[in-house]
């Protein structure tokens, strides 16, 4: 019996871990990734420190200083409000940056939730196969054909949106993609010798799934998820724009832009300035995500 063990290729997990590291270093070597990362870090630092260090309260109204234009544009601009003020005299820069905080918070937590749900479903479907697989995959198919946007605005439209409910609704909308990727990876993984070796040695299914397979297959999937952070941030801002996101007075990109739309002719900066921050953040995340995805595809050799 001992010969069985010696022929098993138990080194597979280590090799796979190296793949994750290779994807990372290959992506990191590209210019796109570096540009994205630098822009992202600058925006992140601004979002964390500016509202705090400048001491400007994004909720503080100043009716006399309302609708002030951004720096060097028109008349009435001040150094105190570099991006101008809104219809209630609130500072646009700090409002945009607080909006960015919420956007990132919701984008990242939603993506984590979505990857977790999808990965669990894919892991069970791929590992156990058979009936479990059939049921879970039918569920995934059904979910994919539900117009999720309608479901999301319906749920949030008829209940009062809060940060947790937004995260849950968006997270439940996006998991099927991850369930599919996870399932196919796990299916190929479970045929490998290290899994059979562990089974021969008496490891429980639970243990194999969570301590052997999951840590291996999760990192490459997490790389794909970077792109979804941006997608979810857009989704969150759309909800905010429709009045179904985090509610005012908390500033979010969506509700600032929705407000600014009413003042578009007299004060175009209210609707456009927060959008520039959002677009910069999204572009930086998408550049990093796209180069990670390319590196992953190049290494896995598939499309």
């Amino acid at each position: 019996m001992s010969t069985v063990n010696t022929t098993l290729d138990v080194s597979a997990p280590k090799r796979e871990r190296k793949i994750a590291a290779r994807i990372w270093s290959q992506a990191f070597a590209s210019i796109e990734f570096k540009i994205g990362m630098v822009v992202f870090i600058i925006l992140l630092l601004l979002a964390i420190f500016y509202p705090w260090l400048s001491g400007i309260d994004p909720l503080k109204m100043d009716i006399r200083g309302k609708l002030a234009p951004p720096l060097f544009i028109g008349e009435g601009w001040t150094w105190a409000n570099p991006l101008g003020t809104d219809q209630l005299g609130r500072d646009m820069l700090s409002r945009s940056l607080v909006g960015l905080r919420y956007s990132l918070l919701i984008g990242v937590s939603t993506t984590i939730l979505m990857v977790c749900v999808g990965a669990m479903i894919g892991l069970f479907a791929g590992y156990f196969g058979g009936k479990v697989d059939t049921v879970l995959m039918r569920l995934t198919d059904a979910q994919l054909s539900i117009p999720m946007i309608i479901l999301a605005i319906t749920i949030l439209g008829v209940s009062r949106p809060t940060i947790p409910s937004i995260i849950i609704v968006l997270g439940l909308a996006g998991w099927p993609v991850y369930a599919r990727i996870m399932r196919s990876t796990v299916m190929s993984e479970r045929k490998k010798e290290y899994v059979r070796g562990a089974q021969v040695l008496g490891a429980t299914d639970w243990r194999i799934m969570f301590t052997l397979i999951l840590p291996l297959v999760l990192p490459p999937i997490a790389f794909v998820a970077v792109l979804d952070i941006a997608r979810m941030m857009i989704f969150e801002s759309v909800l905010g724009f429709l009045g179904l996101g985090v509610q005012p007075p908390t500033p979010t990109f969506g509700n600032i832009i929705a407000d600014g739309r009413k003042y578009l002719i007299n004060a175009w900066w209210i609707a456009t300035m927060p959008g520039i921050f959002l677009v910069l953040t999204l572009t930086s995340i998408n550049l990093m995500g796209a180069s990670l995805e390319r590196a992953r595809n190049a290494i896995y050799g598939g499309a």
Binding site: I234, S237, G275, V279, L282
Partner: peptide
């Protein structure tokens, strides 16, 4: 990457 980063409602307004 730039196209995908333009939120439709903002782009529409601009």
């Amino acid at each position: 990457s730039v196209f995908i980063s333009l939120p439709n409602f903002w782009l529409g307004i601009v």
